[in-house]
């Protein structure tokens, strides 16, 4: 049952003056390029970390594997846009996507996503190994079935559990290079996994109307703003501590430790600021959301820089 009582029915939005034939850019937009770029970056870091850990892989095969992971991430995005077309059509943030705009029919988005999913898993199996390919297939399945189809519309814990899909790319990449997924890969997973709730709840705090209109049970709409801010703060503290873990398991050095400690400190401070902001919390939530993107990028960049320096010394 896709539409809960009280949930708006899909609204077909077509504000085009141009003919309603999709061009290459519309199909590219189905891949959620911004999400894809973050996936590629975190996967690349996982791959370089595995090489710094002693793994050896021909550069061309590593590039092909990274490409396969990117296509898999894009395929998940297209499948998500197919399934969530009704939600996307009532949210200001997503109303401009190709399916709600009426440029790409839902069935085409599904076919495009399904085709690219199969292609990406097959390519990863060819360029690396079956472990990585199976992990990529599981990631796509988890994002579409567990997150999009099940959790997103049924529980405010949707992005907590669903966040696993976005956290898996470094593990997939590590497995692509080594054929295994050791604890170091899962530490990178844990950082993204713990980062996801405060990131999306900060977004939900200042976009609460959007989610309420779409009937998506995000934490602020279900548990209230105060409870959400408390949870954001709790996750931020755990994230700040987890961010230090790469140093303590020996996969990162003092440079990383200093960067992670500083980033974690700022994250906790901004979460605390949001917690104490009372009813006028949208500005601080927006600030936290913006910083969370910088945080994830910078913490993975610190791992990457240290590993690249180590590989060239």
């Amino acid at each position: 049952m896709r539409h809960k009582p009280g949930m708006r029915q899909p609204v077909a939005i077509s504000s085009m003056s141009a003919p309603d034939v999709a061009g290459p850019q519309d199909y590219f937009d189905l891949l959620k390029p911004r999400v894809m770029s973050l996936v590629v970056f975190t996967a690349a870091v996982g791959m370089v970390a595995a090489v710094a850990d002693g793994a050896r892989v021909p550069f061309g095969l590593a590039l092909a594997s990274l490409f396969a992971i990117a296509v898999g991430a894009g395929a998940s995005g297209a499948l998500n846009m197919w399934w969530d077309a009704d939600i996307d059509s009532v949210m200001a943030r997503t109303v401009g996507r190709p399916v709600p705009r009426g440029v790409v029919p839902r069935a085409e988005a599904a076919a495009f996503g399904g085709f690219l999913s199969a292609l990406s898993v097959a390519l990863l199996a060819l360029s690396s190994n079956y472990v990585a390919a199976a992990l990529l297939a599981f990631t796509i399945f988890f994002y579409l079935v567990i997150y999009s189809m099940w959790l997103k519309r049924s529980t405010p814990q949707n992005i907590v559990i669903g966040g696993a899909a976005g956290a898996l790319p470094p593990v997939v990449a590590w497995a692509a290079v080594t054929g295994t997924a050791p604890v170091e890969a899962w530490i990178l997973f844990a950082i993204i996994f713990l980062w996801t709730p405060p990131h999306f709840w900060a977004l939900a705090l200042y976009r609460d109307g959007d989610y309420a209109r779409a009937g998506v049970p995000m934490m602020p709409n279900v548990a209230g703003r105060a409870a959400t801010k408390r949870q954001i703060f709790a996750y931020s503290v755990v994230l700040a501590v987890a961010g230090l873990a790469p140093y303590f398991v020996g996969m990162a050095g003092p440079f990383y430790l200093a960067v992670a400690a500083a980033l974690g400190g700022v994250f906790v401070y901004l979460a605390f600021k949001t917690l104490r902001s009372g009813d006028e919390d949208k500005a601080s939530a927006k600030q936290l959301f913006a910083f969370s993107i910088i945080h994830l990028f910078a913490i993975f960049a610190a791992v990457l820089i240290e590993d690249l320096v180590a590989l060239h010394v």
Binding site: P58, G60, A64, L126, S127
Partner: peptide, 11 residues
């Protein structure tokens, strides 16, 4: 890409 990957794997 499939062609190049095949060659690289053979190498």
């Amino acid at each position: 890409i499939v062609y190049l990957v095949t060659i690289l794997r053979m190498q």
